[in-house]
């Protein structure tokens, strides 16, 4: 065991993992976290706690993760390279580990221009791949990036993201390989809507032997509305929403659109369950946490295994 986290144990035991996501509040309101956490409890193996997502100021991910842990869920502490330099990153990781956090996801972070402080100075001291390597060095060598010994190294289960749909497509598998080489234990992907491309990407990962070295969890996001699908297609960089998805949502009764969105997500999850090289799915029910129990039920991923 690298970290001994629940998530790691589930993957190691060969179970199909099911993870969720929770965005911290825009304020110090703990009640919001509790309300979002409640429907996730018992329905997912781990909850990603986003880090100032879309470059909007929110409660820090480690602090929100602590509250989520108190609610009986295992957090996945997300960390972006946009907001802190290598000193702050390493010290936050030490603190997070000391408080009991065991999973971490390393991300570049959305550019600050997207958020509510567009003229902020982006840090980007190290990039996400270098952050993966840094945490691995801290864990496995017991050394800081600068080389000094760590008194009680943080044993984190290290995650990274992948977007198989951003161009150039043929480079994406090499970027995954770099993340694996840097030390990623698991990968959570960008929301998958284009299954054809996803199959192709996973096949390449299998062919290159990457899926033997890293657990891959494709991201699944149920569409709540036609507007959301159109927005994601046209406005979210690196997102690949095929026209078939939009047509399918348009093809059902207005009141059934969200239900159809869940149907699509469940069909994806079914396919991923049997896809070679896929270790689970990461459900990103964006501002739709209360729907997670229903989605988990319909995707037949319950009950979650106890390990």
């Amino acid at each position: 065991m690298k970290s001994g986290s629940n998530f790691e144990k589930i993957l190691k035991a060969g179970h199909f993992a099911f993870t969720g996501e929770l965005g911290p509040p825009r304020g110090a309101n703990i009640q919001v976290i509790k309300e979002k956490a409640a429907p996730l409890k018992g329905n997912v193996d781990m909850v990603n706690i986003t880090d100032n997502q879309t470059a909007m100021v929110r409660m820090s991910s480690w602090a929100a993760a602590m509250f989520v842990m108190q609610e009986g869920l295992e957090p996945n502490y997300q960390m972006v390279c946009r907001d802190r330099n290598r000193l702050a990153m390493q010290s936050d990781i030490l603190g997070a580990y000391a408080h009991g956090l065991r999973n971490i996801l390393c991300l570049s972070g959305d550019h600050q221009q997207f958020g509510d402080h567009p003229q902020a100075k982006g840090v980007f001291d190290i990039d996400s791949i270098q952050l993966v390597a840094t945490i691995k060095k801290m864990r496995d060598e017991g050394k800081f990036l600068g080389g000094a010994d760590i008194d009680e190294p943080p044993k984190m289960f290290i995650g990274a993201a992948a977007n198989p749909f951003a161009d150039p497509f043929e480079w994406r598998i090499h970027r995954l390989a770099k993340k694996v080489e840097a030390g990623a234990d698991f990968i959570q992907t960008q929301c998958v809507f284009n299954m054809k491309k996803m199959r192709e990407w996973i096949k390449m990962a299998n062919d290159m032997g990457l899926t033997e070295k890293v657990y891959i969890l494709p991201g699944v996001t149920p569409m709540k509305s036609i507007g959301m699908a159109k927005y994601m297609k046209s406005k979210v960089p690196g997102m690949d929403v095929p026209d078939e998805i939009i047509k399918r949502l348009q093809g059902v009764d207005k009141k059934k659109v969200a239900d159809e969105g869940i149907n699509i997500a469940c069909e994806q999850i079914e396919e991923f369950k049997t896809m070679k090289g896929v270790a689970g799915v990461h459900l990103m029910a964006i501002e739709w946490e209360h729907k997670v129990p229903e989605i988990a039920e319909r995707a037949k991923v319950l009950p979650r295994p106890q390990v």
Binding site: C81, S108, G122, D127, N163, D167, W171, P237
Partner: peptide, 29 residues
Amino acid sequence: CSKGLFNGPCGGTNNGNCEISNEVPCAWY
């Protein structure tokens, strides 16, 4: 690169452009 990445491109590459704007070419692309 808007994020000054050394191991790019990131996941925000958008038809050869940067995630910040369709008028900024992606350096890593």
